[in-house]
C-alpha cells in the first residue's frame, strides 16, 4: 500500500482570550487543540477522522491543507512537506468544508474556469473536465446561473465539484455535511461515494458514524486533541459497531460513563 499522507507528531495550540477564559472558567492561557497527532493514509482509501466537536479534527485538517501552520511536527502530503512546501502541497489536494464558500456574484461555470486557472489546469483539459463533472453531478442545468440565485443543494454541488477542479490526488473533507439539511447532506454523501468508487484518496472528518461506516476504509478516533485509536474499519468494528466502540473508548479516556 502506498502512503499518500503521513502526519508526524502534529501539535497546535491556540491562545485563549481573556473573554473566552471567563466563559470557560479556566486560568489556562493556552489550549492544546492538536496534541502529538500521527497517522497515515493510503492511496485509493478513505480515511475517516472521527471525534466529538472541539476534538481537533478541523485543526488537524487545516494543518494538512496548509491553511494554518502547526506549532511543531510535520506532515508529508503527496510527497511534499506542509511545513516547507505549502504551495506544492496545495497543488495536489482538494479541500472542502461548508465554511469555504463560492462568490455568489459569479456562475458555477465561471468559477470552475477561475479555479482551474488558479490550479494551472491546461485550458482544454479544464473544458473537458468541466463538461464531464457538470454532467455527472447535474450542474449543467444551472451552470450559467449566479451562485447567489442557486438553492442550497445546487450551491453545495457546485462547491464540491469546484473543490476538485484540478483532479487532486488527495481530497480533504472537513465535516462536509455539517449544517446542511438532509437533502443537501445526501448530495454530499452521494458525491463522496462517487469519488470513492472512482478510486480517489480521501480524508474525511465527521461525527456521523453511519457515514464513516459506509465509506471509510480506515478510521482515526480523536479526542481532546489526541489520536486515541487508528486502525482499519474492519479491525475496529470486529467486536462491536463503530458507535459502540467509539463510546467505549471515549469513556475509557474520560473516565466517565456517558
Amino acid at each position: 500500500m502506498e502512503e499518500i499522507l503521513r502526519a508526524e507528531h502534529l501539535r497546535k495550540t491556540f491562545k485563549i482570550s481573556a473573554k473566552q477564559r471567563k466563559i470557560e472558567r479556566t486560568e489556562e492561557r493556552c489550549k492544546v487543540a492538536v496534541n502529538d497527532v500521527s497517522f497515515s493514509a493510503y492511496r485509493g482509501e478513505v480515511f475517516g477522522l472521527l471525534g466529538p466537536n472541539g476534538a481537533g479534527k478541523t485543526t488537524t485538517l487545516r494543518i494538512l491543507s496548509t491553511l494554518i501552520g502547526a506549532d511543531s511536527g510535520d506532515a508529508i502530503v503527496c510527497g511534499c512537506s506542509v511545513r516547507k512546501q505549502p504551495e506544492e502541497v496545495r497543488k495536489h489536494i482538494g479541500f472542502m468544508t461548508s465554511e469555504l464558500k463560492l462568490e455568489s456574484f459569479f456562475t458555477p461555470s465561471y468559477l470552475f474556469d477561475f479555479f482551474s486557472e488558479l490550479h494551472g489546469v491546461p485550458k482544454e483539459k479544464a473544458m473537458q473536465r468541466k463538461q464531464e463533472l457538470f454532467r455527472k453531478f447535474g450542474i449543467d442545468r444551472f451552470a450559467e446561473v449566479k451562485v447567489g440565485d442557486l438553492s442550497t443543494g445546487m450551491k453545495q454541488k457546485a462547491s464540491l465539484v469546484i473543490s476538485i477542479v484540478q483532479d487532486p490526488e488527495l481530497i480533504i473533507f472537513d465535516e462536509p455535511t455539517n449544517g446542511l439539511d438532509v437533502l443537501t447532506a445526501k448530495v454530499v454523501t452521494d458525491f463522496l461515494i462517487e469519488l470513492k468508487n472512482m478510486g480517489k484518496s480521501i480524508i474525511l472528518s465527521t461525527h456521523i458514524f453511519s457515514l464513516a461506516e459506509k465509506i471509510c476504509d480506515r478510521i482515526g478516533i480523536i479526542v481532546d486533541g489526541n489520536m486515541i485509536k487508528e486502525d482499519t474499519l474492519a479491525a475496529i468494528t470486529e467486536k462491536r459497531s463503530l458507535e459502540e466502540e467509539f463510546f467505549a473508548l471515549y469513556a475509557q479516556i474520560k473516565g466517565e460513563n456517558l
Binding site: 504551495e87 469555504l100 464558500k101
Partner: peptide, 17 residues
C-alpha cells in the same frame, strides 16, 4: 467582504501564493 463570506479561504487552498 470575501473574508466575511468565506470565499477568501476558498482561494487560499489553491496553489497560488
Amino acid at each position: 467582504g470575501e473574508k466575511e463570506r468565506g470565499t477568501f479561504a476558498t482561494m487560499l487552498v489553491t496553489p497560488v501564493s
